[in-house]
Amino acid sequence: MTQNPSALDPKKSFQGLILTLQTFWARQGAVVLQPYDMEVGAGTFHPATTLRSLGKKPWKAAYVQPSRRPKDGRYGENPNRLQHYYQFQVILKPSPDNLQDLYLQSLAAIGVDSVLHDIRFVEDDWESPTLGAWGLGWECWCDGMEVSQFTYFQQVAGVECSPVSGELTYGLERLAMYVQGVENVYDLNFNGLDGDARISYGDVFLQAEQEYSRHNFEAADVKKLFGDFERAEAECKALLAFGERDDKHLMVLPAYDQCVKASHAFNLLDARGVISVTERQSYILRVRELAKACGAAWLKTDGAGLVG
C-alpha cells in the first residue's frame, strides 16, 4: 500500500482533523486520553473533566468523546444534527491566560483561516443542571455555525472550582464540514481517500442515525428505562456509602459511573417524551444530587490533590 497523505490531512479527512487536534494539544502538554467507555451526552461527563476539574492539582487533558443526545435524532435527515456525534474535549486547569489564542491557533492548525472566515465568541453561559455545574464563556461561531463551546468552569458537581479550569469542546463534525467545505455531514470524507477507497461519514454512521432515531423516539422501552434510572441511582448511593472512610474516599469512580448511567437513562426518557415538566425537574435534581455526592467524595481522594 502506498502512503496517502490525504488520510492525515485535516482538510481532507475527518480522521485527519481529529489526529491534528490531538497532536496540537499534545504539544501543549495535554495528556491525550481515549474516550470514556460509557454513554454520555457530552465530553464534560468524562471523569477526566468532571472529577479532575475539582481540587487544586493542575491538569491538562484532551480526548475525543462520542456524545449521545437521543433528542437530537433526526433519522439521518438533518445536515448537521446527530444523536451520536464526536466531541473533542480539552480541559486545562488552571485556565491559561492565552486560552483564546490557543483555541484560535488550534483552529488554524486544522485549516480554519481567520482571514477568510468569521470567527466569533458569542455569549453562552454553560450550565449543566444534572451535573450541578456552571461556567461562563461562549459558543464559538465559524461563519454563523456553532463549532465549539468555550467555558471557564466556576462550579462543578456543586463545588466551587479552585482554581478555575478552561474547557474547550469542539463539535468535530461541524468543524470538518467547514474545512472540507461540504453541505451535509454525511458527505464528509472520513478517511481522506478517493474513488472506491473513499469512506464517507454516511458510510459509517447513516444507518446508525436512522436506527437510533427510531429507537430513541419510538422503541426504547420506557419501563425498562425508568427501572435503569432507579437502579443506577440506588447503586451510586450504595457505592458512595461503601467507599466512605472518614476523611478519605475509596470508591468514587465506580459510583460516578452510575451517576452517568442515570443521566443517560433520563435523556432517553426525555426523548421518548414521557417525562412531564414537573417530573423533569425532579429527575434533574436527582441526578444532580448524585453528581454532587460524587464531587464531594472526589475531593477526599488523591486525584483532587488535597490528600497525600
Binding site: 485556565s95 466556576q154 479552585s162 482554581p163
Partner: peptide, 11 residues
C-alpha cells in the same frame, strides 16, 4: 450581572 474568576489567581 454575572462575573467570573479565571486563571491561577482564581484559587
Amino acid at each position: 450581572p454575572k462575573s467570573m474568576r479565571w486563571g491561577a489567581a482564581s484559587a
